[in-house]
Write a protein that binds this DNA or RNA. Structure first.
Lengths: 210, 210, 210, 210
DNA sequence: AATGAATGAGAGTTCATTCAT
DNA sequence: GATGAATGAACTCTCATTCAT
């Protein structure tokens, strides 16, 4: 939108245990307020109150509201990206069917594990330099997935980067729908199963035998 | 978040040509401001200014900011949902491969046709009762798609409604990623082609021959 | 308050019958809106709508909102003042007991006859140059009453003007209370009777036999 | 008009001395602005400015404009009501002539003591739920006065509650007239004297000897 | 370090008034 | 003459941010 990717610095390094706890509490509180009140009513005062600290303290740890929300978003994105990266690293050289299953599990589990946060953060993603951060996380995952695809033991991919992009998007879409629809239409395990079918079918269709 | 689906009424019926133009201009302006400034800076005053009318006029046509954004979102969602419904109706009884292609074309074209609007509206979708409206549009499309799947000439689906949900999500995900990443990584036609592959592969994998 | 007594001119003389009707309708509408919505929500548009005319028409007859409300107030005040003047003229030379009765009847009847208007107008009286107009009406009534008292056939008043002021205030107070308390505690006739007792007692106490 | 009696809560308890001073300053300022500019121009911003604080501070102590004005009105009404109650309690069992004098003194003194506030508040009384509050204050005073009348040592009242209502109204009317007419026609002491005459005359006329 | 009262720019919304039709 | 869409100043209220305590 308007702003370049801001540096995302904390005003202080939360070296002491106390500080770290406070920062964590504020992050939690932000998500809760986001879910309970919506972005427009997510104010620094309300977040501080929910976290049980004063606004002043909040500003001791985050230079402004922007940074607070960006930090919360970044943390979540990093969590998911790392889960994907780990899984991709572990399945280099595997068969595509296994890659598909592993990727779906890694991604969906990481998302559903923090379902509430995920849901809340879709709202931030569109603002606060969120788009850039989301983009960056996607790049990381894309690199990991296309790297993995290129090493598939049983299939060749003509354009691993493109296939990775479609694959990730195709997995993320239904997950997002599930998280955003309040009444959870489908249990997480069914979702995973169905997405494994999807991922496997796509990867096979998009590749040729070695 | 907090509010139920609001009635989405215009304050006045835009019967006269002049009014209709003004309403349209305001809608356009809302999207432009949304894209240029982000939601937080999308104020009624700015939208009115961009539309070349006074705030007062804006409020003559929309009871409040909420309704304005909701109306813009609703218009877009309806456009896409109708395109999908039309395509599904036309392909009842067809082969799944054709269904897949038709659905992808219909959805992606409708989205890319109003790419700017699409992109801008993801931000609204999370607020302003947007979630409910998005949900409703999804229901319409789901019904259309699962209805179509059930009539496939060459395959049987055990649970058309579930498959429809996954399919739509899987198509929407990559489209969304494309729209949200500012630098358009992939041309629209390539995207369609790849999604057709995805959709066909999934539908075949998820069904059994008649 | 801030402004001197404004000239209270209509923009046009309502010579034609049509105009006179419209003016009257607007006046009525103003009172209704005042009662139904309170001053703060008494807008020119609402008054015009209630009167069944356009805002534009309202402004054809009244130069501004101020004048409209002032005119409505003035009309009511004049009505009451005239009733009092008439009664006072008719009872010059009478006995104070009869004067008291006549005055109470005239004043209370005039007020209760337009109870709704009376009630609504207390709100205007404090603004819109209302104070001055109320003052002027009081002067007229004061002059009439003290003029009458001075001619009493059976008693002498040392300071008719002061006695008139107290008398009028003492009658107006309970009437106002009755009108302002929504649940009408006392029937109008009981009020009159009680006020006659009050007025007679005061006038006798404040005067000496001839 | 539209609303029930609002709870009249301050947003924060003005426990600290500083806060209490600020709240008081805002109340004072409200009265001054009311007198200087009239209700329509009595805006929260102007009141805050006159009080020497920011609008934000005003809203820290009063949830909305409504409550601010209501609080100021309530304070004044309570002051007067308490003065009347005190006087009535002290004159239970007294002779009606003494009761009359005491009541007039208590009421008129309380009003004139805060003449400016009194005058300003007549304007609020008609709006902002003022009517209800005024009504409540009147009830308190009515109860006190009729309770006192019932204990009169030298006279019997057939309907103390009705007599109390008329008496209070008859005293309030002239006081109001005096406060509202800018040029003070009559000194306060003369007014009191005249009202004592009025009150005594009425109470005697409305009662019978024991 | 922590607090939370104070600030004031800025948002949403209304409404008296005008004027092209 | 009548209409009512358009205007934009002004109002109420919120909230990110600061700083004296």
């Amino acid at each position: 939108m308007t702003d370049p990717v801001p540096p995302l610095v904390h005003r202080k390094k939360p070296l002491q245990a106390r500080s770290a706890l406070t920062v964590a509490a504020i992050g939690e509180a932000a998500i809760e307020v986001l879910l309970a009140e919506g972005i427009e009513r997510t104010t620094t005062t309300r977040v501080a109150a929910r976290a049980g600290v004063s606004v002043g303290s909040l500003y001791q740890y985050f230079p402004d509201k922007h940074s607070l929300l960006a930090a919360v978003l970044a943390q979540h994105l990093t969590h998911v990206a790392m889960a994907v990266e780990k899984s991709c690293t572990e399945h280099r050289g595997a068969k595509v069917a296994d890659m598909a299953q592993a990727l779906v599990h890694a991604y969906v589990s990481a998302k559903l594990e923090h379902a509430r946060a995920s849901q809340a953060l879709y709202a931030i993603a569109a603002e606060h330099g969120g788009a850039e951060r989301v983009e960056m996380a996607r790049e990381r995952m894309l690199a990991a997935v296309s790297g993995m695809l290129a090493t598939a033991g049983d299939r060749d991919f003509s354009d691993p980067s493109r296939h990775a992009a479609i694959l990730l998007g195709a997995i993320a879409g239904p997950v997002r729908n599930l998280l955003e629809s309040n009444r959870h239409v489908m249990p997480g395990d069914d979702l995973k199963e169905e997405l494994v079918t999807l991922a496997r079918a796509y990867l096979l269709a998009a590749s040729t035998p070695c």
